[in-house]
Simulated scan of single mutants.
Amino acid sequence: MKTVSLCAVLFIFAACKTSPPVSSCRYAGVVKDLSGIDGCGLMIEMKGGVLLQPAEFAVPGFTLRAGQAVRFDFMELKDRASTCMSGRIVRIECIEETK
């Protein structure tokens, strides 16, 4: 009985412990409007000029805007093709606007 009570108390304290959420948004970039290039649209440009073409978003409701600075994480979708012919096609796993 003592073991069960001790486990219950430890579980309650562990469950109540709060810590700030760890962001998995590891990369930084700027949203670019490349709609002037056939098949392209809003893309994310990372440092070094790497372009990412978002095809899917794991987080619904986020809207990309040209010039927007973002922190994000992504997974490359190597089985996808695009008419854009520029950048890597990706699924955005995490995204947030930065200042």
Rank of each mutant, 00 (worst) to 15 (best):
F62Y: 13
A58C: 03
R88T: 00
L51N: 08
V4F: 02
R71W: 03
S24A: 13
F72L: 07
V90K: 04
R26A: 11
D38C: 00
V30P: 00
I92N: 02
R91F: 01
P54Q: 06
S19V: 12
G48P: 04
P54S: 07
I95K: 07
R88M: 03
T98P: 00
V4W: 00
V9S: 06
S35G: 10
A81L: 05
A66T: 12
L64M: 05
T98H: 03
S82E: 06
L34K: 11
L42K: 12
A58P: 08
G39F: 05
F57P: 05
G41L: 01
E96P: 02
T18H: 09
G48W: 04
Q53H: 15
T98Q: 14
R80K: 15
F11E: 01
I12H: 02
G29N: 09
M75A: 14
M75R: 15
S24L: 05
C25G: 15
V90A: 12
C7T: 14
E45G: 08
Y27I: 00
P54E: 02
E56K: 15
G39V: 05
T3V: 03
C84T: 12
P21F: 03
C7L: 13
E93V: 07
K17A: 13
S35R: 08
A55C: 02
L51Q: 11
G36M: 01
